[in-house]
């Protein structure tokens, strides 16, 4: 489903990823953990195709296609979704309009007809309950004046509506209190299915109590330095990242 080989990435001339390898199968949930500055968010942005992240070596193959030559919107059309660590405000654009534009853009990319406006509203309503998203939130401008928890719930709603093949969650737990963490965690878990893979990027083990991963990877100094099952996350929680930082240095 996703094959990353020997990925080298520079940002503003600075080497951030340094020979990263990662292989994910369909329906698998992988967690990426690691210390600050290890390159976790860089990995998320490179996958999504953000400008300014230069791949100097290596390859990313998603569902048999080389994505490095694709624009961000083409990647989205192929089924790649990024839940942002810092969701962006779009003043004056309601949540419903934003999602409808997004979904219809993706459908157009796939050669499908646009959603009927009424059908779309009904479809979105089937997805809002688990995430405790009110109609009022959908009428407000995207992320404008949202609390940290509302922003993250809104990201998960967009993921539910766009139904990606691969969802990358970039520190979706940051800035959440215990209750919000539970809602987001349960919301994401409800979206797991055998055709959907997830790459969960996090500092802390606590999100993984809700989104139980099949694999846990430690990213340090630009590459995967260790891979294990969910118990690795617990071990890291106890010991911290000091040993990897030292090993990589």
């Amino acid at each position: 489903m996703l094959e990353i080989k020997n990925l080298h990435v520079t940002v503003d001339g600075k080497q951030i990823l340094n020979g990263l390898d990662l292989s994910m199968g369909s329906g698998e949930v992988h967690a990426i953990m690691g210390p600050n500055g290890a390159g976790k968010s860089t990995l998320a942005y490179v996958l999504a195709g953000r400008e300014g992240y230069e791949v100097t070596e290596g390859s990313i193959v998603f569902q048999g296609k080389d994505v490095l030559g694709m624009s961000p919107e083409e990647r989205a059309g192929e089924g790649l979704f990024l839940a942002f660590q810092y969701p962006v405000e779009i003043p004056g654009v309601t949540g419903m309009t934003f999602m409808k534009t997004a979904v219809n853009s993706v459908r157009a990319y796939r050669g499908e007809d646009p959603f009927d406006a009424m059908d779309f509203v009904k479809f979105v309503r089937t997805q809002t309950a688990t995430l405790q998203i009110t109609d009022d939130m959908l009428r407000r401008a995207v992320n404008v004046g949202f609390s940290g928890g509302e922003k993250k719930r809104n990201e998960v709603l967009q993921m539910a509506v766009l139904q990606p093949v691969l969802a990358v969650l970039d520190e979706t737990d940051s800035g959440l209190d215990v209750d919000a963490l539970r809602i987001v965690g349960e919301g994401v878990t409800a979206l797991r299915n055998p055709e959907r893979s997830m790459l969960v990027i996090t500092h802390y083990q606590r999100l993984l109590d809700y989104i139980v991963p099949d694999f846990v990877h430690v990213l340090a100094d630009g590459k995967i330095v260790r891979t294990g099952d969910k118990s690795l996350a617990l071990e890291l929680e106890e010991k911290g990242y000091a040993e990897f930082a030292a090993a990589a240095a």
């Binding site: 999504a48 953000r50 400008e51 624009s71 961000p72 919107e73 990647r75 989205a76 059309g77 979704f81 990024l82 942002f84 969701p87 962006v88 405000e89 779009i90 003043p91 004056g92 654009v93 309009t97 934003f98 534009t101 997004a102 979904v103 853009s105 993706v106 990319y109 401008a141 967009q158 766009l162």
Partner: peptide, 30 residues
């Protein structure tokens, strides 16, 4: 129009022109 706004819209599947149209329509909404 911020680069982060453009990237956010594009990541959700919109091409540059529809992203600009959406952001500008939001700006003019009042």
């Amino acid at each position: 129009i911020g680069d982060d706004q453009m990237f956010y819209c594009q990541q959700r599947g919109m091409d540059e022109e529809s992203a600009v149209a959406l952001i500008v329509n939001g700006f003019c909404r009042d």
